[in-house]
Simulated scan of single mutants.
Amino acid sequence: MNSETPLHDYLVISRGHWDKDKSKEQIDTAITEFYDWLNRHIEAGRMRPGSRLSTDRATVSKAGVTTDGPFGEAKEVVGGYWFVSAASLSEAADLLSHSPTLPCGLHYEVRPLDPELCTASDITNETPPA
Results as ranks from 00 to 15, higher is better:
residue 1 M to D: 11
residue 2 N to Q: 02
residue 3 S to W: 08
residue 4 E to C: 08
residue 4 E to H: 13
residue 4 E to M: 10
residue 6 P to C: 07
residue 13 I to R: 04
residue 13 I to Q: 03
residue 14 S to K: 13
residue 14 S to D: 08
residue 15 R to H: 15
residue 16 G to P: 04
residue 17 H to Q: 15
residue 18 W to Y: 09
residue 18 W to C: 04
residue 23 S to E: 01
residue 23 S to K: 00
residue 23 S to P: 07
residue 25 E to G: 08
residue 30 A to C: 06
residue 30 A to R: 03
residue 31 I to G: 04
residue 32 T to N: 10
residue 32 T to E: 14
residue 35 Y to T: 10
residue 36 D to V: 13
residue 37 W to A: 04
residue 44 A to S: 12
residue 46 R to D: 14
residue 47 M to A: 12
residue 48 R to C: 01
residue 50 G to R: 01
residue 50 G to Q: 00
residue 51 S to F: 07
residue 52 R to S: 14
residue 54 S to K: 05
residue 55 T to W: 08
residue 57 R to P: 02
residue 58 A to C: 11
residue 59 T to Q: 04
residue 62 K to S: 14
residue 62 K to Q: 10
residue 63 A to Q: 13
residue 63 A to D: 15
residue 63 A to C: 02
residue 64 G to A: 02
residue 65 V to R: 13
residue 66 T to H: 00
residue 72 G to H: 08
residue 74 A to P: 00
residue 74 A to I: 11
residue 74 A to N: 09
residue 74 A to K: 08
residue 75 K to P: 03
residue 77 V to L: 14
residue 78 V to Y: 09
residue 79 G to R: 05
residue 80 G to S: 07
residue 81 Y to I: 09
residue 81 Y to G: 00
residue 82 W to M: 08
residue 82 W to I: 03
residue 84 V to D: 05
residue 91 E to P: 01
residue 91 E to C: 03
residue 92 A to C: 06
residue 92 A to Y: 02
residue 92 A to F: 03
residue 92 A to N: 01
residue 93 A to T: 15
residue 93 A to L: 15
residue 94 D to I: 06
residue 96 L to I: 15
residue 98 H to G: 10
residue 101 T to S: 07
residue 101 T to Q: 10
residue 102 L to K: 06
residue 103 P to K: 00
residue 104 C to R: 05
residue 104 C to L: 12
residue 106 L to W: 13
residue 107 H to S: 14
residue 108 Y to V: 10
residue 108 Y to I: 03
residue 108 Y to Q: 11
residue 108 Y to G: 03
residue 109 E to K: 00
residue 110 V to K: 08
residue 111 R to M: 07
residue 117 L to W: 12
residue 117 L to Q: 11
residue 118 C to K: 15
residue 118 C to W: 12
residue 120 A to G: 10
residue 126 E to P: 02
residue 126 E to M: 15
residue 128 P to D: 01
residue 129 P to A: 10
residue 130 A to H: 12
